[in-house]
Design a protein around this nucleic acid. Sequence first.
DNA 1: AGTATAGATGAAAACGTTTACGATGTCAAG
DNA 2: CTTGACATCGTAAACGTTTTCATCTATACT
Lengths: 340, 340
Amino acid sequence: MPVTLHDLAREVGVSIATVSRALSGAPGVAEETRQRVLAAARAAHYRPNVMAQRLQKQRTDTLGIIVPTSSTRFGDPFFGDFLAGVGDKAIEHEYDLLVSTRAPEADELHTYERMVRERRVDGLIVISTRPHDERILYLLEQNFPFVAFGRSDIDAEFPYLDVDGEYGMYHATRYLIALGHRRIAYISAPYTFMYSTHRLQGYRKALAEHNIPFDEQLIAIGDLRDRSGYNLTRDFLSRENPPSAIIACNDWMASGAIGAARDMGLTVGQDLSILGFDDVPLAQIVHPRLTTVHQPAYEAGWHICDMLIRLLRQETLEQRHVLLQPELIVRESCGPRATS
Amino acid sequence: MPVTLHDLAREVGVSIATVSRALSGAPGVAEETRQRVLAAARAAHYRPNVMAQRLQKQRTDTLGIIVPTSSTRFGDPFFGDFLAGVGDKAIEHEYDLLVSTRAPEADELHTYERMVRERRVDGLIVISTRPHDERILYLLEQNFPFVAFGRSDIDAEFPYLDVDGEYGMYHATRYLIALGHRRIAYISAPYTFMYSTHRLQGYRKALAEHNIPFDEQLIAIGDLRDRSGYNLTRDFLSRENPPSAIIACNDWMASGAIGAARDMGLTVGQDLSILGFDDVPLAQIVHPRLTTVHQPAYEAGWHICDMLIRLLRQETLEQRHVLLQPELIVRESCGPRATS
DNA sequence: AGTATAGATGAAAACGTTTACGATGTCAAG
DNA sequence: CTTGACATCGTAAACGTTTTCATCTATACT
């Protein structure tokens, strides 16, 4: 039913080859003919069949991203912003964006194979990288174009963009130290995320620089949700020698920590300092407003997508490894150590 | 380079038609041949070229959803959850999910045309419906399969799933009235969203039932962000006869309202009652925890996607119009009217 | 006038599938 | 032995493009 090149060709009285050339702007067609074709196309509301184009061109003009919905990550506004950045960039260059949630029961690599082997997409964006990331190893092995959001510790080079978690945590920790804190608890993200390690590094580096011994007891691992921030904070605060400050690996856990402190009768920002990571909108809503490390989610998505598109177009990337330096946003949840 | 049907055919010594039949499970191929083909396919790691299949079948096996990134909606975790529900359902039935952000400068309908006329997707999910929704009119006119999240006021029937905002607001308002409140301010969403009207209806209905006159002065329109909730609340509270309760059309504005009340020295839940809508994770984090109307975002996305797939498979929908009744979640942000 | 050249066009192959149709072979019933 | 039914398989068309190559015409040059 929809109008095809063939229809237009018959209409105008030329061959489909000429129509194709006229519409694509290819050289080798008389200006007068081109105008006739364009007029006919407009009149008939012609639109190309993209599937036919894709089969012919052996390109899908589609980018893919696979997100685990089971994890906490999808409901996180950080992710929504990231995706918005990716999407805006993609459409700017007329790429489609295929978002696939990972079927929970299925093997994760199976989802990647589906994308790669069945040629559903031209390139992939890999998010929340992990140590020894098998997805990256697979894509490298298949020689499939991708850009990762985050680094990994595998023994191979690949293009990525990452927010420098070590840098961010280093400065956050220094900030707390400058405020007089010495016992700073740290609520980490699970070590299955590569960034956990980096951020912890920054924390340790700042401590070391100020000759504060690293205390294993002050490290806890949360699940990124506010509930675990709450529980772990209650745990920390009920010890005999409680910390005077707590750093959480994301704003949700930090917000949970604020709730715990409040429930235990402490004034956050005075009796206890709490510092987050991400700077999601929530950070400005909780009371007191959260001092945190800002991750430019939208920009990161935008930039990664840009890198991937350049990769696909064979343009040389000026930088295959981008490390963004996050900024510490000082609000009200941290203060000088209470002199008790 | 990748292996095709043709390669397999040559390998096994049969025609590509037989190979195709064997792989697809179609009848008319000897069991012994089928096994040989399957073995060869496995050995060669054969995967079909989906673009070729799509061109041939005239189906894309892809669902589309278009999201405006400029609006506040994308960063909203509500939307992330919704999308997760859609994505999980889609992959369950082996559909791809195409997520397109609307190019901000471009005409919105242009994005829909791209999807429909160029046959990028088999069906669409239309979100945040509006009064006289031109997108719906367009899809109806093109006879293109879609399911809407939300109703509209246009003069035509179409399949949708909606959360009954009138029901939700009606019960929320009744709840406040039962607590003794009479002057209940209402921070609406912009009327460009269809649900704004419904929710306001529920509010008015509850008032009318209790013979409380509707006061235009108590209605304000926010932009869904916490900032506007904050500003409008300060505005309400600085009047000579301030309301004793405030309903906001989403949790973000409600959270902003909580901040404003706090800044003005009021204790939320005692001096002032605040009620939200959506029940995003934030609602449990703010202090006091927000009494709000729960919208099942994930389930809604899941269900809508299910409806769309059934539509595409020509199965008859048991219900073309689904109205979910949201539940009031009572927490701590509302209390009896202060007897001053 | 003859010929080289450039520009415009069409025929046809190709992309990798699915499927309608026809051909072949086998076997049982008449 | 003939006939029909059935199972199996191959041929070829189709899906709607893009692109290579050959053809044709008109112009310009010798």
